[in-house]
């Protein structure tokens, strides 16, 4: 379970304080849309939840632990094992194949290459982009790239998925596809994860199938319409 406890954040000492001591519990299995005007701190909040920025006040709890206060190496490990990221521009490595991009977090999480590949291929299959597994990001469309990014966010079967304007650069159809994928991810462990679990010794951290916490920073009305919960900043 992911929670914010009285969180404020400032980019520099004396700079504008964002969030003003925000507390919020993100329920597993629920898609939460974080919204608000541009510059209000939607992206910043996601980075705080993703343990890349440390709150100036308050803390971020994950599974009851104050992970925001942990040392850098621990936070990196939490990111690798328990948090998945989707960036606005897919941020795939242009020099590597789609499958190599998808399995990247699994490598940082210490998975074997074979296990990571099996899991990544399964996700690409589910997302309907398995035909592109051997291509480079320059050879696929924006919609496909964002779906690949969703696969990458899910590869370690994380408890939390954070997406920053994932539909910002997409047309309606592609946006709907990506949102559907994120909603499905909130629903619980997917088939690929289950089959990978059986085969692989290096299992994911999540024991139960209560669903993932999905947080989407967005100002896309389409996403807001379909989110289970809206957190306005």
């Amino acid at each position: 379970m992911l929670a914010l406890e009285g969180v404020s954040f400032a980019y520099a000492r004396g700079a504008e304080e964002l969030f003003g001591g925000l507390s919020h519990v993100f329920t597993p299995g629920v898609v939460t849309a974080v919204t608000g005007p541009s510059g209000r701190g939607k992206s910043t909040l996601l980075y705080v939840l993703g343990l890349m920025l440390t709150p100036s006040q308050g803390r971020v709890l994950l599974g009851g632990e104050a992970v925001s206060a942990a040392p850098d190496a621990v936070r990196a490990r939490v990111r690798a094992h328990r948090i998945g990221f989707v960036f606005q521009d897919a941020a795939l490595d242009p020099t590597r194949t789609v499958l190599d991009s998808v399995i990247e977090p699994a490598l940082y999480a210490g998975w074997r290459l074979g296990d990571a590949r099996a899991r990544g291929s399964g996700l690409l299959e589910q997302m309907g982009v398995s035909a592109r597994a051997g291509h480079r990001p320059g050879e696929i469309s924006g919609g496909q790239a964002q779906r690949v990014a969703v696969c990458r966010a899910l590869v370690t079967d994380p408890v939390v998925v954070l997406a920053d304007e994932p539909t910002g650069n997409l047309d309606r159809d592609n946006a709907a596809g990506v949102l559907a994928a994120l909603s499905a991810a909130a629903g619980g462990a997917d088939q690929a994860a289950e089959s990978a679990d059986k085969g692989a010794g290096s299992g994911p951290d999540r024991g139960t199938s209560e669903g993932r916490t999905v947080v989407i920073a967005t100002h896309d009305p389409f996403v807001l319409d379909h989110a289970d919960e809206v957190l306005a900043l």
């Binding site: 490990r77 690798a80 940082y108």
Partner: peptide, 16 residues
């Protein structure tokens, strides 16, 4: 630097 930033965001430690 974008490549390295992405790696860090996706869970690479400083040591990595």
């Amino acid at each position: 630097r974008k490549d390295l930033g992405r790696r860090r965001a996706l869970g690479a430690t400083r040591a990595t």
